[in-house]
Simulated scan of single mutants.
Amino acid sequence: MIRVAIVEDDPLIRAGVAAVLGSEADLSVVGQGSDGDEAGALVEACRPDVLVMDIRMPRLDGIEATRAVCATDAAPPVLLLTTFDGDPDVVAALRAGAAGYVLKRHPDDLAPAIRRVADGEVWLDPAVAGQVLAALASLPVSGSPSVVVAGLTAREREVLALLAEGLSNTELAERLFVGVGTIKTHISRILFKTGCRDRAQATALAFTSGLVVVR
């Protein structure tokens, strides 16, 4: 059973999302919130496997809420809901640590997307994935390994350092006292944020950046 928490300021949409997920045998809605300010407390109280959150909300929006949630030790994957195909905030949210996004008009994609990100993968709405990836590729990225690593959260840097020691996902989970799914999510975010192709390239980055020093 995949535990899901929902943060959405529109009560009708929030209820609709809960109803859609409630009809799935392997998904369970364990908590709901109405604002990005509530996201952190909701995650801490409910310990969801996936957080589904609207990208546009009053007070604290989905981008800042994503950044705050992803900075925590046992952060669940964050799956964002957006209304617009070309929402420019999607790219910012992905760079903040979101594991993917779903268009609100594609409710049938929500359950598959939740399953995908719960397994440590990334979900981009197929209709506009190319557009989002092109936008990400066009963003300036420093060539300095130390600057690239500095863009990771403290937990992601910790995972990267342990990854460079050759630990498996299971060993990483045991070392950090979290689930294997959480480790998969951290690694997916590390690869996504740094542009590394695989674990080997990420390990090389850990050494070239000075994060890990050969003794």
Rank of each mutant, 00 (worst) to 15 (best):
V132C: 03
D87P: 02
A127I: 01
D109Y: 04
A135V: 00
G97F: 04
E165Y: 12
R155N: 10
L162M: 15
V149I: 12
L94D: 02
V102R: 04
L160I: 07
R115T: 10
D109R: 07
R105G: 07
S138G: 01
L110V: 13
S146A: 15
V117C: 14
V90G: 15
V117R: 15
A93G: 01
W123E: 12
D108P: 07
A135G: 12
V141T: 02
L152C: 14
P145K: 01
R105V: 04
H106R: 09
A111P: 11
A99D: 04
G143I: 02
A92W: 02
N169W: 08
S138P: 00
N169L: 08
P112G: 03
L163N: 13
R157H: 04
D125L: 00
N169A: 13
G166M: 04
A96Q: 01
G100K: 06
W123Q: 13
S168M: 04
P126G: 09
L162Q: 15
V159E: 14
D87G: 06
A134L: 09
D119I: 05
L139A: 05
H106P: 01
A93W: 03
R105I: 05
R95Y: 01
V90F: 09
D89E: 01
A164H: 05
G120T: 08
R95N: 07
L139Q: 08
R115W: 13
A93L: 05
L163W: 11
L167C: 10
L124I: 02
W123G: 14
L94I: 04
T153H: 06
A150V: 03
P88Y: 00
L103R: 01
A92M: 02
R105A: 10
R105T: 09
V141M: 08
S142C: 09
G166W: 03
R155T: 12
V149Q: 13
R115Q: 12
G120L: 10
S142T: 08
L136Q: 10
L103F: 00
R115Y: 10
A98S: 11
V148R: 15
A154Y: 06
S146W: 09
A92E: 07
D89I: 02
L160P: 13
P107F: 08
L110Y: 10
L110D: 14
Q131Y: 09
A92Y: 03
R105H: 12
S146T: 14
S144W: 09
L167H: 09
A111K: 08
V122K: 05
R95L: 04
S146P: 11
R155D: 10
A99S: 14
L163A: 14
I114H: 11
L124P: 03
A129W: 11
T153I: 05
I114N: 08
D109P: 02
A127F: 07
V117L: 12
H106L: 01
A96I: 02
L163D: 15
V128C: 12
H106C: 08
V159W: 13
A92C: 03
S142W: 02
L152N: 13
V159C: 15
V102G: 07
G130I: 00
L167P: 11
A99K: 05
A150H: 11
A154G: 06
R157N: 09
L160G: 06
V122Q: 09
V117Q: 12
V159H: 13
V117D: 15
P140D: 00
S168T: 14
A150P: 06
L167S: 09
Q131T: 11
A127H: 01
A96L: 05
V141G: 06
H106S: 04
P107Y: 10
